[in-house]
Design a protein around this nucleic acid. Structure first.
Lengths: 204, 204, 204, 204
DNA sequence: GATGAATGAGACTTCATTCAT
DNA sequence: AATGAATGAAGTCTCATTCAT
């Protein structure tokens, strides 16, 4: 899933550390990130940090050694997800079928959002608060997605007036709402297809 | 706790009440609801209740006399909004142009959601948590909207596979996401039109 | 002990409140201040605020309603003491025997400091951090003391090169140190008299 | 815990050690003491131990190997300073001019205290808490200072009712207070001279 | 009925100390 | 012996809710 080298999760929020983290520390960091992702997804951003620590079977202190703030932890969770999407979008850019590539990514984005409502909040809030902190990561992903869009538009597969931001808004928003309303998979699928149909080129 | 008929949470001056509150009490209740709507819209659901009381120029005690719980206050705010939408949808049902009526309501819903992010959360969460508490109110509104949809479908204006819930999800979701991302009015408008295009009948 | 009207303790840190505090609230505020004075004196500034609250037989919440911050509480304690000294110094200004008045105040200051080592810290720190917060209070007291000094100097009772600040430093410092070293009353008295002798006019 | 002779806490390179630490260990111990002295002086006793370790470019673990407790580290810092003063006072005892020797030491003590507010706290608290732990060190210094005082008294240079403890109290206290009040060097000098004048023999 | 003071559980965060590497 | 990651008790502060005035 991680396409290129090293420790892609660790390069955000950890600051510039000369030597890589010790083996156990890296494992714990990953445990914490995983636990946080789960817990935030299950119970929203208002869960106490102690809960995250407990889920990771670690002390709060450890959590705070890795993430100096609850917000930092959250940002790191979001960053990990954005990284995944960035990498996946990059892989799709060179596809032979730009339309298919576009919709594949859109589906993938929807998958990621579904059942993970904090990413929804997160991506939604990224545009406002976290853009600074997530640095170029969001921009990179946006550039990739914009490329997917442009190529799909050039191929005549989708409408011309659509930006990456709007695409994110539509998909994230619909999934988020669907989930909050407790709609079943079927209804979610229909909603997504309404969006897809809206995105497709019309001759109206 | 609810003593008399119908939808006791919502009657803030709309319909005639079986045993009406004293004049000043009713005024205070209205003040509180108004303040709560404002404050929740501005700062989200996490504002302290004291803030709501202060905005209404009343003591917390008074607030708690009218609403036994912060949640109850919130439900009442949501209820008031749903009532408005219910009434507006009812008025549109008998329109001569079902397609136009449908889109008019959809625009109206989007207006209501825009810049009121708590209603977004609220409507979104209604499907899950508050359905019970909001009693038939949501159902009524849904029935009205379903009627709008059916008539628009019969008139060939919109696609056949669309339920009221999905419509809500799409509109609420896109507005909510647009707002959170800080997108401008123009982008929001484009997103909404993507949804509208998706909702329209296609011959694909 | 309070020379002029009303509630001299409450007019610091409470902000401008139109109507005076309710009777019980004022009582509790006083209880808290008293408890804080005691507890700080006994165990230094590092006591948990909970301890202060417990001593006052009140909840922490109440403490925080009256003093928004641990520091604010501390400032209020200091303020109460400075008020006392300000008032006492004012009373001594018009004495017929400026030298005696000066030494009387100096003794009084020493009494206040002795066995209250937080005032020591407090007065000491006033010059740096709290000057802003204690507003004119410290200045008022300093002006009074400066007047005492000037009159005593004019009367030839004390040396010419002495400012109020230095006087405070000498007295507070010696008492504080004496107390910390666990010196007995006798030694403290001797130290104070060394200072007094140093302060007196010499013909050297 | 203290295995061999005399004043085991203080031997950081001063005297010959019965079973000397390995060269690097001794260097680390010295680094830590130096760092602690600096850091405590700059930021007070409340600095985290990690800060001391970082300043010494060592791990906390190393710190704890040398000093079993934060308090132990602090005691060691104080001990080092007291040793210096002890040695200096010893050198002055045989001076030809006991009065000058006395005031020289007093100035020296003031220098040591000035701008090192932890020694102030430390020396002040020595009398209470650390006396036991610092073993005979303080006593030795006190004996030396007492000798200085006695000789100066015999020479008629200073008043007869002055003990070493009181001298310390006066000097430490005035410097400490001066520093806390943020008084400039000039005011500090004046305060010290008031004390000196008080200490001198008067024929009053 | 209205007021706002009181309450205290619980949130986030720090830091002295221990222990695996 | 050195390192720095882990620990968790304890501290400050918030806020939903109750209750005396």
């Amino acid at each position: 899933m991680h396409v290129q080298g090293a420790h892609p999760v660790a390069d955000l929020g950890a600051g510039p550390c000369d030597r890589p983290l010790r083996a156990d520390a890296r494992k714990n960091r990953a445990l914490l990130l995983e636990a946080a992702e789960e817990v935030f997804a299950e119970r929203g951003l208002s869960v106490p940090v102690d809960e995250v620590a407990r889920r990771a079977c670690l002390g709060v202190g450890t959590l705070y050694r890795h993430f100096p703030t609850k917000e930092a932890l959250f940002v790191a969770v979001v960053a990990a997800r954005i990284e995944r999407l960035r990498d996946e979008s990059r892989c799709l850019i060179d596809s032979d079928d730009p339309g298919a590539a576009f919709f594949a990514f859109a589906e993938r984005l929807a998958d990621e959002v579904r059942a993970k409502h904090d990413l929804a909040d997160a991506l939604a809030e990224v545009g406002i608060d976290y853009k600074a902190e997530l640095g170029g990561l969001v921009d990179e992903m946006h550039r990739n997605v914009q490329a997917l869009i442009s190529r799909a538009q050039a191929a005549g597969a989708i409408r011309d007036d659509l930006s990456a931001q709007e695409l994110f808004g539509l998909i994230v928003g619909s999934c988020m709402a669907a989930e909050h309303q407790g709609l079943g998979t079927e209804a979610q699928r229909r909603m997504l297809h309404v969006v897809f149909d809206g995105v497709r080129r019309h001759d109206s």
